[in-house]
Design a binder for these strands. Structure first.
Length: 488
RNA sequence: CGGAGCGUGGCGCAGUCCGGUAGCGCACUGCAAUGGGGUUGCAGGGGUCGCAGGUUCAAAUCCUGUCGCUCCGACCA
């Protein structure tokens, strides 16, 4: 076990906090609930961001930017939507500070704004206020816009990456001429989220539909990807909403069809946030610290030279030259740790930081024409000939990627259970795990289960088989098969 | 906002009950050796004890007030 970090089996949240700060992913900001994303953490975010940005551009979306400040009046226009956010909006009321002899710097009471401004908790309202200007005819549709921005939600309880007052995300906002097209967009994006999670973050996810109580306020339907963390709790890792005509109606956004009919525009919105980093930490981390999947790792290979003096140092340097040149060609992200910490210290340090592959190079290896490789996903060191290490490494990185996914999937499979007994559900939830079972489709059932067990319906999975199922709570015929779990 | 706990060098803590002018581990700086799983030795630097009052000859310690943070609940991506 790594020195100084709590055992994740015993103190998962202590482990999480330590790992995030000690691996230098992030640090606490001065304002409660805010977070500084440090360079190592930000590189991870940039890698995730670049992958998804590429995906949406491939599928015809473009980036834009909408303002941070939103007039308060915009929120009155979509009552359902604001219900969901009213309790967590930061409001700008003044525009100036001034020096006060007694109190130091104070808010200038004379600078009070006539109309207060809301710092965006999400941007549907501003976006749709603009879409009203931009959309007249079916020829203006679809609009497929995304933005990478920060948003602020005044949360009561915060945790680095998982829930912070301010966080970074992408929010897509699309406008369509038909309901079918909007629905297709919603699901297409969800599929991209699934790919992002599974193929890049190496996290298996359930895709499905949120229940009424869990859906986004203002949406017709909310779809999600849900993942299992190593403490067997669920994490919602991304959502995609079919907004129907709700926002178009709130903002009066209509268009003329090919047949010269006036109709309201159909909308979607979808987002993934820096929470994904929390997901990576919580899904893959182990007692030594982080384990970052190679495809998103800021550093894929860390090289630890084993040297005694300057002569050996330059020997290693020369020895590494062709390897490093090879990395440049294959695009492997590497780092050589020349600090004079002891090798053992470096091993632990880089394991904590989750680097997928470590290469050790010392006198013994140079004599044999080898390097030592140690994979972060397993507890083994292997000697490799220097000759073919350049071809091998991308393959090994790919194997690590697959192995992290396989481990996460195996873990999820071990900890998901099907049952039609409520007692059993309570026991499983209590011990930790997901429960797949029938649900009668009633709000009050969901609420009752939540109150009694703290578990919520994470989603109605696309592959549900409700036939012949009964509701785990009421015993009535099931309307849906659902997944219950305690969630972050 | 309810319940609990904590504020003492950068981090983690002891000291507080029973007042006497601040200490430990890690980290940091320098030198030397060491170097294949958190390496030693020696020598250093750094704290108005969260803040504001009060009691006292004397306050990290006692009293009052205040601010902040963490954890558990209600809310949430």
């Amino acid at each position: 076990m790594s020195k100084g970090i709590p055992n994740p089996e015993k103190d998962f949240s202590g482990w999480y906090k330590q790992v995030v700060t000690r691996a230098e992913l992030a640090d606490y900001g001065p304002v409660k609930g805010t977070m500084v994303i440090r360079p190592y953490g930000f590189q991870l975010w940039e890698n995730i961001k670049n992958i998804f940005d590429h995906m949406i551009k491939e599928s015809g979306h473009t980036n834009a930017y909408f303002p941070l400040l939103i007039p308060k009046s915009f929120f009155a226009q979509e009552a359902k939507h604001i219900e969901g956010f009213a309790k967590e909006c930061a409001v700008v009321t003044h525009t100036r500070l001034k020096a006060d002899e007694e109190k130091g710097i104070i808010v200038d009471p004379e600078s009070r704004l006539e109309e207060e401004l809301i710092i965006r908790p999400t941007s549907e309202t501003v976006v749709w206020s603009m879409y009203k200007k931009w959309i007249q005819s079916y020829r203006d549709l679809p609009i497929l816009i995304n933005q990478w921005v920060n948003v602020v939600r005044w949360e009561m309880r915060t945790r680095l990456f998982l829930r912070t007052t301010e966080f970074l995300w992408q929010e897509g906002h699309t406008a369509h001429a038909t309901e079918e097209e909007a629905q297709k967009e919603t699901l297409d994006i969800l599929e991209l989220y699934r790919q992002l999670a599974e193929d890049y973050l190496a996290i298996p996810v359930f895709t499905g539909l949120k229940t009424e109580s869990e859906k986004f306020a203002g949406a017709e339907k909310t779809y999600c990807i849900e993942a299992m963390m190593r403490d067997k709790r669920a994490l919602q890792a991304g959502t995609s909403h079919n907004l129907g005509q709700n926002f178009a109606k709130a903002f009066g956004v209509t268009f003329q069809t090919e047949h010269n009919q006036e109709e309201f525009v159909w909308a979607t919105s979808w987002g993934v946030s820096t929470r994904l980093i929390g997901a990576v930490i919580l899904a893959h981390g182990d007692k030594k610290g982080l384990r970052i999947p190679p495809r998103i790792a800021p550093v894929q290979v860390v090289i630890v030279p084993i040297i005694r003096d300057n002569d050996q140092r330059s020997d290693v340097q020369k020895y590494l030259e062709p390897i490093i040149n090879g990395f440049a060609e294959t695009g492997v992200r590497y780092h050589i740790d020349w600090t004079d910490n002891s090798p053992g210290f470096k091993f632990n340090e880089w394991e904590m930081k989750g680097v997928p592959l470590r290469m050790e190079v010392g006198p013994r290896d140079m004599a044999e024409g080898n390097v030592i490789l140690a994979r972060r996903d397993m507890d083994k060191k292997i000697s490799f000939s220097c000759e073919n290490v350049n071809e091998k490494i991308p393959t090994i990185l790919e194997k690590i990627q697959q192995s992290l996914y396989a481990q996460a999937l195996a873990f999820r499979n071990e900890n998901i259970h099907t049952t039609n007994s409520y007692d059993e559900l309570k026991q499983i939830i209590n011990e930790g795990g997901f429960v797949r079972c029938g649900w009668d489709g009633l709000d009050k059932t969901e609420t009752a289960v939540k109150e009694e067990t703290k578990a919520t319906i994470r989603c109605i999975p696309f592959d549900e088989q409700p036939k012949d199922l009964t509701c785990v709570y009421s015993g009535k015929p099931a309307k849906h098969e659902v997944i219950y779990a305690k969630a972050y």
